[in-house]
Design a protein around this nucleic acid. Structure first.
Lengths: 204, 204
DNA sequence: CGGGAATGAATGAAGATTCATTCGGTTAGC
DNA sequence: GCTAACCGAATGAATCTTCATTCATTCCCG
């Protein structure tokens, strides 16, 4: 398929996809707008018809892809009733997404942590939405009596995300030599399930 | 020791400490060399007598502080025999370090993830040394029969670090409003201990 | 043809790095 | 004891490179 975005509607889309590849490849700061433009088959100035500036382009990627991720997660959880099982599905879904959208994962994981703009000022609401799903699973598990009441859902959420994200990062950066996403998903799920379940509901 | 050497050491040290504050405050990219120079009470050019360039300065901070952290960890673990207890001490030590050296934590956590230089090319050996301590604790726990054999020490290590680091980051960035480092340490330790311990050795 | 879309060369800002110069103190000669 | 030559350390203004962004111009579709 041609790199040229000759169709009318998908210029913006072509720029976003090109930016993901280029940012993943060279990093946000090292990437030049002209690199993105070339990859998208578009002139430098064209990018500014769709995005205010370079940073806004990165931000758009974040917003759009996190929303995409959240929707996929909800679909994956659909029909899974048991909170313990839902935690496992969450872990599997997350690593599966990392594997299937490697460049996206790299941009989200690595480049988003890049600028104070993002960590100090920008509120990543879309990330919070995604993680709120986990917090809700824990609350439900507690009210059903299958998760310990002394687990703090807020802290557990960040611990869980940290574990997922770090392993995802190692997977992406190690060029997939050392880490199997499947094994990582099961390992994280195992540890957190055993760590949060009540004795009565403990696995195996 | 000679006058010269001690004065020279002081100046380098002053630059490193100033850089930590400035990088933590404004972020590595937004920080100007002249900002660091001013904070250190030194001329711009002087920094280049001690460091090759701006990036090397950041790298030096990383190397030195990670080594400092590892040594402190070993001291904290000294005399603690039980592998399960050692995990708890690790978590407490980590969060205590974050609290006591907030600016350092901010630079290590946030700014180091900033550049591909660090994540793709640079090998953070000092971080690995620090984390290898955890991996070793798990192996010891397994051979003593207090930790499950089906835990993968390599994966568990990254999951544990991810949890610590993410909570540490939330603590630093949220300006300490939402997260108590003590509670975070106990929560992470609880989850991972219950998640990794054999039934016989399970806490409480 | 008209006008919105696209172009890409030119611009200007920013800021890392350099280097000619100055500083401060140590040593040597008398 | 005093001065002067010396030398490495420190300075910071000037330089030089690197892009993000702009906008006068061209393109092309209806």
């Amino acid at each position: 398929m041609s790199e040229k975005a000759s169709r009318k509607g998908d210029k913006r889309e072509a720029i976003v996809e090109a930016a993901i590849e280029v940012f993943a490849q060279k990093g946000f700061h090292a990437a030049r707008i002209s690199d993105v433009a070339r990859a998208a088959g578009v002139a430098d100035g064209t990018i500014y018809l769709y995005f205010d500036n370079k940073e806004h382009l990165l931000l758009s990627i974040f917003e759009e892809k996190m929303e995409f991720l959240r929707v996929g997660l909800l679909a994956a959880l659909d029909g899974v009733d048991c909170p313990l099982e839902r935690v496992r599905v969450f872990a599997r879904f997350h690593f599966d997404s990392v594997r299937r959208h490697r460049a996206v994962a790299e941009v989200l994981q690595v480049e988003l942590r890049l600028s104070h703009k993002f960590l100090k000022d920008y509120r990543p609401e879309k990330l919070w939405d995604y993680l709120r799903v986990f917090e809700q699973i824990v609350r439900e598990g507690q009210s059903r009596g299958v998760m310990r009441a002394d687990v703090d859902p807020f802290l557990a959420k960040w611990a869980f995300f940290g574990a997922l994200d770090e392993l995802g990062q190692q997977y992406v950066l190690s060029r997939r030599e050392r880490i199997s996403p499947d094994a990582a998903a099961e390992q994280v799920a195992d540890i957190f399930l055993r760590g949060m379940a009540t004795p009565a509901a403990s696995p195996r």
